[in-house]
């Protein structure tokens, strides 16, 4: 099996994240700032904030993830280790899956941990927290996995950042719809198993399919 290369990949990604804490902290601070803009820009009224808390946290998390996705393959591309990754004997899709999930753990998991605190600041009703955490835990890996395709397609380009957002944001709409739908249902004391089931199904499909597409995209980008 390929346990050795998988272990090496996880260790390498964690080490890089530890050496460059800014990669982890910057999206987190951005997340905090975007959420702060909403009460300032719309209204600090508690009843109003309670209504928009779930969607605002979701959209802010989405935007913060876009920032970190840009760097998913960029540094590896610049220093040449991405080209080395493509010629390893281990299956590329598996390594990419490991890399994306490790990247999710180092950059997105802190965002999820911060989300309940922001929920409290936005007066999210108590029933909403469980749904908020569950939808973020199920939904953000899908965003990472789909976003990895976009990051792979734009990795060699100079203006990659904006282009990346442009090509992948439309693909995130279903996840946003089901994520915020579940939170809204939860705050109205309704069942939200259906939305969670949809998110889980999308996550399983994304886990199976997107690493293959990302591998193909990386091969295209490297050859450009």
């Amino acid at each position: 099996m390929y346990w050795y290369s998988i272990k090496t990949m996880i260790g390498r990604e964690l080490l890089i994240a530890a050496r460059y804490p800014a990669e982890v902290l910057n999206p987190l601070v951005f997340f905090l700032m975007v959420v702060t803009l909403f009460p300032l820009g719309i209204s600090p009224e508690p009843e109003f904030l309670a209504k928009i808390a779930g969607p605002v946290i979701w959209i802010a998390a989405l935007l913060a993830m876009m920032l970190s996705l840009d760097s998913l393959f960029k540094n590896d591309f610049d220093d040449g280790s991405l080209a080395q990754l493509l010629i390893t004997p281990s299956p590329l899709a598996v390594l990419i899956l490991v890399k994306v999930l490790t990247h999710w753990f180092t950059t997105v998991f802190p965002i999820i941990l911060l989300a309940p605190l922001l929920g409290a600041m936005l007066q999210l009703p108590a029933e909403g927290y469980r749904a908020l955490l569950l939808t973020l835990l199920l939904g953000t890996p899908i965003i990472s996995l789909i976003g990895a395709i976009g990051a792979a397609l734009t990795v060699g380009l100079h203006r990659g950042g904006v282009l990346l957002s442009l090509i992948v944001l439309p693909l995130f709409i279903p996840i946003l719809v089901f994520g915020t739908g579940a939170i809204e249902a939860a705050t109205l004391a309704m069942q939200y198993n259906g939305q969670l089931a949809m998110l889980s199904a999308m996550l399983l499909i994304a886990l199976l399919v997107t690493p293959i597409a990302t591998a193909a995209a990386l091969k295209i980008s490297i050859n450009n």
Binding site: I149, L153, I167, L171, I173, P174, V177, M202, A213, A217
Partner: peptide, 16 residues
């Protein structure tokens, strides 16, 4: 590749 990813997503987007 992007068009293919999009076409897989179109039904999901439509129903969501």
């Amino acid at each position: 590749l992007l068009a293919l990813v999009g076409v897989v997503n179109i039904p999901i987007i439509k129903y969501s």
